[in-house]
């Protein structure tokens, strides 16, 4: 049943990448428990605009959990207290009346804050560009039956491809490591025959770019897997390590 909440919000406000940020406290009242977390921020922003204040900048797009844009670190956890959901899928019924909610941006040197809760995640794009592609012949696509694929491999590749690149793994990791993201992007290709052409160099190139971007190392705490809204498994990280070792041995 719908209820209404009065909440205290502690939100990170930062003018731009160069200036230092700080927390601002806001009171919001009459928040419907059926609202999503982003809609709650919309309500706050409407008021801020009416009052002539600067609204809170935050990333959002599809608001149905598939685009990977929303990126709020809520009460010490990426995408808030629930598992397997993005911030847009987090409903206000997950909070109690009178609660204080702390909202921060993803914090990592590889994800510089652009404004308030918006961070620059183009480092992910550059990791994909470094090796997340396959070579195919031009012209018509060949008959799918020409490419027999083991069902388990197809399932695992699909599960890895579910990664929406939101960066919750980096945000959750104590080392700000991007190993879960990078391993998912490597796995979705490594498991399929189409991905074999670049297999010897892909892991090396993407890991090198990942290090270049300033992400940390993996210490296997498993926090990324637990916080990933798409349930990407750390088995992908082990696969990436295998791919990386074999690429290191076989590359010229």
């Amino acid at each position: 049943m719908e209820g209404h909440l009065n909440l205290t919000l502690k939100i990170w406000r930062q003018k731009n990448t160069q200036t230092a940020g700080k927390f601002e406290t806001y009171q919001v009242s009459g928040i419907s428990t059926d609202m999503s977390f982003l809609e709650m921020i919309d309500v706050l922003n409407n008021r801020l605009i009416e009052e002539g204040d600067d609204p809170v900048a935050f990333d959002h797009d599809c608001r149905e959990g598939i685009c990977g844009m929303c990126s709020m670190y809520i009460n010490g956890r990426p995408h808030g207290p629930n598992r397997g959901v993005t911030t847009c899928q987090l409903h206000m019924r997950s909070f109690k009346d009178g609660e204080t909610i702390t909202v921060e941006p993803w914090r990592a040197s590889a994800f510089p804050v652009i404004k308030d809760l918006v961070v620059n995640r183009s480092a992910f794009d550059r990791i994909i560009a470094a090796g997340g592609f396959i070579s195919v012949n031009t012209g018509n696509a060949q008959d799918a039956n020409n490419l027999p694929i083991n069902k388990d491999n197809a399932d695992d590749a699909f599960a890895a491809a579910a990664c929406i690149g939101c960066g919750a793994c980096v945000a959750a990791c104590k080392n700000a490591s991007a190993m879960l993201f990078t391993s998912a992007k490597i796995s979705q290709l490594a498991l399929l025959p189409q991905g074999q052409i670049e297999a010897a160099t892909r892991a090396q190139a993407m890991v090198a770019q990942m290090d270049e971007e300033g992400f940390g190392a993996c210490s296997n705490t498993g926090a990324c897997e637990a916080e990933c809204p798409k349930g990407i498994s750390i088995e992908n990280i082990a696969r990436m390590n295998r791919e990386y070792f074999s690429a290191t041995f076989s590359s010229k």
Binding site: T102, S109, K174, S177, G216, A217, S219, A226
Partner: peptide, 29 residues
């Protein structure tokens, strides 16, 4: 690794709920 990883998050989180996603000893090696 410890020194290197520390540099990857120059601004620390104000609130961290580590127990929600990992074991304390895995974060305290």
């Amino acid at each position: 690794l410890w020194l290197d990883n520390k540099k990857k998050r120059p601004v620390a989180y104000a609130v961290v709920d580590g127990a929600a996603n990992s074991k304390w000893y895995s974060r305290s090696m």
